[in-house]
């Protein structure tokens, strides 16, 4: 895991004249999962939006695979799949149609067989594949979006509160899937409130407070980060 894929270097971001990120620096290597933990307003989503080229840093840089996001947003977006917190795919389209539409939009169309295969992989029940999303639960929508992200075959994944609103079984399935993707070489940056989920899935956890990284925890070889330690740090350093 020597190749740096995601790199924040002294990243500062202001939104409506308010400093949201203050000199944030971190790196994520190929095949690694970095989880940023933080309370509301800590700057988690801002970090992701900056890497997606949706926000422009006031200073510092955000690079993906060595390319500065804000100089070449179109190039880096081709390498990125993004799973927002609240996935609002089109309600008037079915799961298959939604995925087909977004894949076409990304310029990477797939066959319906590939789409079905991906939906099976995320365990979306077969009866829902050809049903419009208006009747879907949040978990089902999330699975559809994950299936889409998988089909994008993007080497870099940004996950914004990916397990928020999912039931425990779905969270477990999701975590397994994310681990699998990292093992296959995907580089993943996720932001979450979920301390235990993050400890379970991430190789490293960064604690974010008021726009600054206040702690970083590495997973031991062949094990998970100790959730108790992170939880205590989160409570003391982040929430307090």
């Amino acid at each position: 895991m020597s190749d740096v894929v995601i790199c924040a270097s002294n990243l500062c971001v202001e939104v409506q004249s308010k400093k949201i990120l203050k000199h944030v620096s971190f790196t994520v290597h190929r095949g690694e999962i970095l989880a940023l933990l933080g309370g509301n307003g800590a700057g988690k989503s801002t970090t992701i939006k900056t890497f997606l080229g949706l926000l422009t840093p006031t200073s510092g840089s955000a690079t993906l695979a060595g390319v500065n996001v804000h100089q070449s947003p179109a190039i880096v977006r081709e390498k990125v799949a993004y799973l927002p917190e609240s996935v609002m795919l089109y309600g008037h389209l079915t799961a298959v149609e939604n995925i087909r539409y977004f894949l076409s939009l990304s310029g990477k169309p797939k066959t319906d067989a590939d789409i079905i295969e991906s939906l099976k992989r995320v365990a979306l029940q077969e009866s829902a594949w050809h049903t419009v999303l208006n009747g879907y639960s949040k978990g089902m929508r999330q699975k559809t979006a994950i299936a889409l992200a998988l089909l994008r075959e993007a080497p870099i994944l940004f996950l914004d509160e990916p397990t928020s609103g999912l039931d425990p079984v779905a969270i477990d399935e999701f975590n397994r899937l994310v681990t699998q993707l990292a093992e296959q070489g995907s580089t993943i940056l996720m932001v979450t409130h979920d301390v235990y989920g993050a400890c379970h899935v991430a190789d490293r956890i960064g604690l974010l407070r008021e726009g600054e990284i206040v702690g970083m925890f590495d997973a031991p070889d062949h094990g998970n980060i100790d959730s108790e330690t992170v939880h205590n740090a989160f409570i003391e350093g982040v929430v307090a």
Partner: peptide, 13 residues
């Protein structure tokens, strides 16, 4: 609908 950023990031052009 909270889809604008997702569309912007996903769309090739």
């Amino acid at each position: 609908a909270g889809r604008h950023d997702f569309l912007t990031v996903t769309a090739r052009s």
